[in-house]
Design a protein around this nucleic acid. Sequence first.
DNA 1: CTTGACTCTAAAGTTCGCTTCAGGGTGTAG
DNA 2: CTACACCCTGAAGCGAACTTTAGAGTCAAG
Lengths: 134, 134
Amino acid sequence: MLNIGEAARQGGVSVEAMRYYERQGLLAAPDRDANGYRRYTPAAVRRIKFIKRAQDVGFTLRDIGDLLFLKVDPGASCSDVRDRARAKLGEIDEKIEVLMRMRFALAEWTDACPSEAPVSECPILDALDRDDET
Amino acid sequence: MLNIGEAARQGGVSVEAMRYYERQGLLAAPDRDANGYRRYTPAAVRRIKFIKRAQDVGFTLRDIGDLLFLKVDPGASCSDVRDRARAKLGEIDEKIEVLMRMRFALAEWTDACPSEAPVSECPILDALDRDDET
DNA sequence: CTTGACTCTAAAGTTCGCTTCAGGGTGTAG
DNA sequence: CTACACCCTGAAGCGAACTTTAGAGTCAAG
């Protein structure tokens, strides 16, 4: 059983983030010591890490709440979870695609840029002026 | 020439977002009608779309301002512009990398997920629960 | 000539994911 | 005993990017 500081440290989040997750219902309110201090179980620490990892792969706290609900919903199947993961995957793929297009456009422009020309002849500015899109 | 409502619709943003972009200096203050209504050119609509796309992939409005500033910097030499473009290119690459890592993790998990298992056996939730990776 | 959808402004409010603050109690080392 | 690090609460603040509100003018249709 850990106090909040140690649990936060092990989970890799701040103490305040822990209390915030609790308020948001992502982390069950833990038992308290006689002094009122929160006492966390190893399971709670795993939960914190779960939240953090899910966040790291792009889920919002709301998404994570849904996932956690599915986790304990007897009527939920694995495919429910997979659907959410796939939706997130789709979002990420879209972003990657747009970034790749931006990347190639910008790379093309920087490559085309001569070292020392007046701005008036700059191919990058030219390109940005021509197709605002990317 | 479009009024703000039509421009917003075509750009895929809200009317309020348009006025907000204008206040933030991302969108030039457009000409006004006799009645004071803003009138937008097709170029302005392209600008709106650019802002939106850049935003969707994780650039802040400030970042986008930097990108747009590549265009209009008065006292810059061509190599200055190119340097900033390269810096942005680096940012884009970082974003792509982060997203790729998310993508990889999610894809691995969704691939491992069988159609119809109880959530208790879901490999995705398992992965999020496990103490290694991501 | 009225109705309803549009436009204008300035300013205040909202959401997300926390962090900071104010004002206290606790626990332990020296 | 006294630092000093920790814990508690509730509330406010923050930065980003809008949205909502309030109050007022405009325009096209019927």
